[in-house]
């Protein structure tokens, strides 16, 4: 009986660790120019549309999370990085509203915001969705409200471990590759 208790408590301890093993944001490795990761080869790029780099560079909007804000800056590509929340506040200052709380943001409002303020692209994480082959996958998608389409989307088979943000490094690496291709 006591033995079982031990096993259960150890299992619980390990389980709770899962949430603690969140990778911290990394900076680019100066040797390779990418984030260090061992998982690089497994990323699939789904959408890849060429856009004008000067417009793309202007502003990246990331989810309301310290991690993404930090990673967005560490990409060393965008002139400015903002969270959804900061963009909403900016729009309020400019006298318009924006609502990015829901899974389905109003795209026409986003389009107006990009015209009113300055061009931007929105980074969205798509965690734990099932692809056509019924594999759990995690991915990043980048939406351009001025063009009205997703300009970049990738994914990686993640099982149910997507909360460990180490999975995002290979995804960010593939995003970097895309960014560096644009002229």
């Amino acid at each position: 009986m006591k033995k079982y208790m031990y096993i259960v408590s150890v299992a619980l301890l390990l389980g709770s660790c899962g949430l603690l093993i969140r990778s911290k944001p990394q900076t680019l490795d100066p040797k390779t120019g990418y984030f260090g990761s061992s998982l690089y080869g497994r990323v699939t790029v789904i959408t890849d549309i060429s856009v004008d780099a000067t417009i793309l560079k202007s502003l990246l909007v990331v989810p309301n999370d310290e991690y993404y804000a930090e990673m967005g800056k560490n990409l060393n590509y965008f002139e400015e990085v903002m969270t959804y929340h900061q963009l909403e506040e900016k729009m309020l200052e400019l006298g318009d509203t924006l609502d990015l709380r829901f899974q389905m943001p109003d795209k026409l409002k986003l389009n107006r915001a990009a015209k009113l303020y300055k061009p931007f692209v929105i980074l969205e994480k798509r965690s734990l969705y099932r692809d056509a082959h019924y594999v759990w996958v995690t991915g990043l998608s980048v939406y351009d409200p001025l063009r009205g389409e997703i300009i970049f989307e990738n994914r990686i088979p993640s099982g149910d471990l997507a909360y460990i943000k180490g999975f995002y490094f290979p995804l960010f690496n593939s995003f970097l590759e895309y960014l560096r291709k644009q002229k």
Partner: peptide, 15 residues
């Protein structure tokens, strides 16, 4: 919504 943006009608049709 994307189709409306691509048709350039986003300003007239507000939401």
């Amino acid at each position: 919504e994307d189709a409306i943006i691509q048709a350039g009608l986003a300003d007239e049709i507000k939401s």
